[in-house]
Design a protein around this nucleic acid. Structure first.
Length: 503
RNA sequence: GGCCCGUUCGUCUAGGGGUUAGGACGUUAGAUUUUCAUUCUAGAAACACGGGUUCGAUUCCCGUACGGGCUACCA
């Protein structure tokens, strides 16, 4: 029987969650849901020096905003494997380090930072099967010396003893078999002198204890995967070792390298899901949420950055992503982030929003400005302008003239179009409009044109000017739809006022 | 430097021993809206290079180049 799929997203609370991290969480979420499994959030806070207050809450809020909520873990409710914060699991790790020690797979090391630096300078090599011979550790020191140091409370770390000559095979769901030679590995610290495990030990122990079946993480972890494989083996957990999938990285849009916070500042797009204020420096980094992006569009974009369904479908709801997702279709190479396409996704999602939903957003702006309008009117306004937008927060700037009469008129258009001929036309069209009983796009347009023609004027030459006289601006939705929505009274009054003020 | 991963239009990608190498974003032109946006149509635009294997390689293999990641008592 195959065990229930259990995956985890395991960020460190060292700052805001990067969009690459969000994508990793997303792929874990999709994989879990696809297989009816569990998705766990585990906080890896084994490095007390890098702890940033607020980071954990930020991670939780980000996942919630994105709609990819873990069903177990910090912020989402405890399961049977609680706690989910490694600092609270501190007591669990030591015994596994001891187990490794007893079995001869690990050893104590007492080297100081200075000694370590000196060793690296001298050998230009890591702590490994050759250099460890020259260092202060339980492999080189007499047994009683080691015991004496331990008893005296001398600081120590526990290092893994990497075999000198062994092939370590990592089977990766995305990359296939990757072969490493143990001679290239180093004796990584598993247990630090401050009593905390390092990532490597804590990660393997927790994944084992939490019955994780698949480890889906960034490609930056591939080089340490053989170390993890060795740990499963030495701990006797080889038969329940999770399967690995190392994700390609998110790259800078220009140039090369991993996408970083700096790139967002430099190129003008957020790299974080939510706005983040650094608690130390007070520096603020923009977020997709605050910029007006929809979470489902953001997630859709992220899903397609490194994965594709093999069809030409590009717009996916979260359930559709779950349905279509498979690890096999994740690409191997890094993906450069594309801010323009991210905007395009948002535009697509904006169009899928109902007029009523957009009206709610616009109403919030109206209320702020002390403007009242009926929901029906606001909805129709939204219906007319939504095709022009990429973001809902552009609603007001594209529709303000529906709610307030123009205070000024686009000067360029006035300069170009306002003349004796147009003055005569506007004065004549006012009574024509007033006489209409049925004031719709279907009635105003022919009336407008007929009036122009009766004066021997090309109707087209008056359209933009007319638009400016009633709205103040040269651009906007389809003219006669706009006219009809504003209504006869409003249109004729605005027109009279405009003609008067321009005389 | 060493180790590992990768390489199809500018970008995200499909494809795969014989294809007009497909789509999307962006971009260019035209049409529509006498504006803008939208929409429609058309266009430019890619298999990194060199060797093999093969009747045939963009596809398979090897090398080179280039890119990326890792190389901490950070994750």
């Amino acid at each position: 029987m195959t065990p229930k799929v259990r995956v985890r997203f395991a960020p460190s609370p060292t700052g805001a969650l990067h969009m690459g991290g969000v994508r990793t969480a997303l792929y874990n979420y999709l994989f879990a849901k696809k297989h009816g499994g569990d998705f766990i959030l585990r906080i890896e806070d084994t490095d007390q020096n890098r702890f940033v207050s607020g980071a954990e809450a930020y991670i939780i809020e980000s996942l919630k905003w994105c709609g990819i909520e873990p069903n177990e873990g910090i912020g989402f409710g405890d399961g049977v494997h609680a706690p989910y914060r490694q600092s609270e699991r501190k007591a669990m790790y030591k015994q596994y380090a001891m187990q490794l020690l007893d079995a001869g797979y690990a050893y104590y090391a007492f080297d100081t930072t200075e000694e370590l630096d000196a060793m690296r300078d001298r050998f230009n090599a890591p702590y490994n099967y050759v250099t460890r011979e020259a260092m202060k550790n339980s492999l080189t020191l007499p047994e009683e010396d080691t015991q004496k140091r331990l008893l005296a409370g001398e600081p120590y770390v526990i290092r893994i003893k990497i075999p000198r000559k062994e092939e370590v095979r990592v089977t990766d769901l995305i990359r296939g078999n990757v072969l490493f030679h143990s001679a290239q590995l180093d004796d990584k610290v598993l247990f630090k002198s401050d009593g905390m495990p390092t990532y490597h030990l804590a990660n393997v122990v927790d994944d084992y204890l939490m019955k994780i079946t698949h480890v889906i993480r960034g490609e930056e972890w591939l080089p340490s995967a053989p170390l993890h494989v060795l740990l499963y083996k030495y701990l006797g957990w080889e038969s329940v070792m999770p399967q690995f999938a190392h994700l390609p990285l998110l790259l800078k849009p220009d140039g090369n390298g991993k996408l970083s916070k700096r790139d967002g500042d430099r190129l003008g797009f957020p790299v974080f899901p939510l706005e983040w204020k650094d608690p130390i420096t007070g520096e603020i980094s923009s977020g997709y949420r605050e910029k007006g992006y929809y979470p489902d569009g953001f997630i859709n974009m992220l899903a397609l950055l490194g994965w594709n369904p093999g069809t030409s479908q590009e717009i996916f709801s979260l359930p559709e992503l779950v349905e279509a997702f498979s690890i096999e279709r994740i690409s191997k190479s890094g993906a450069k982030f594309d801010a323009a396409k991210t905007k395009w996704f948002n535009q697509q999602y904006l169009r899928m929003r109902s007029d009523a939903e957009l009206a709610t957003e616009l109403t919030a702006v109206l209320t702020e400005k002390g403007i009242t309008a009926t929901p029906q009117f606001t909805e129709r306004v939204c219906h007319l302008v939504k095709e022009k937008l990429h973001f809902a927060n552009e609603l007001w700037e594209n529709s303000h003239f529906f709610f307030e009469a123009p205070k000024a008129y686009d000067e360029e258009v006035i300069k170009k179009r306002w003349n004796e001929e147009s003055k005569a036309f506007m004065q004549k069209v006012i009574p024509v409009f007033e006489a209409l009983t049925d004031f719709t796009a279907a009635s105003t347009e022919p009336a407008f044109k007929a009036t122009a023609e009766s004066l021997g004027i090309n109707p087209g030459s008056q359209m933009q000017l007319f638009r400016v006289l009633v709205s103040g601006v040269g651009g906007g939705p389809v003219l006669f739809e706009m006219v009809a929505l504003l209504g006869k009274t409003e249109i004729t009054e605005r027109l009279k006022k405009a003609v008067h003020s321009l005389l």
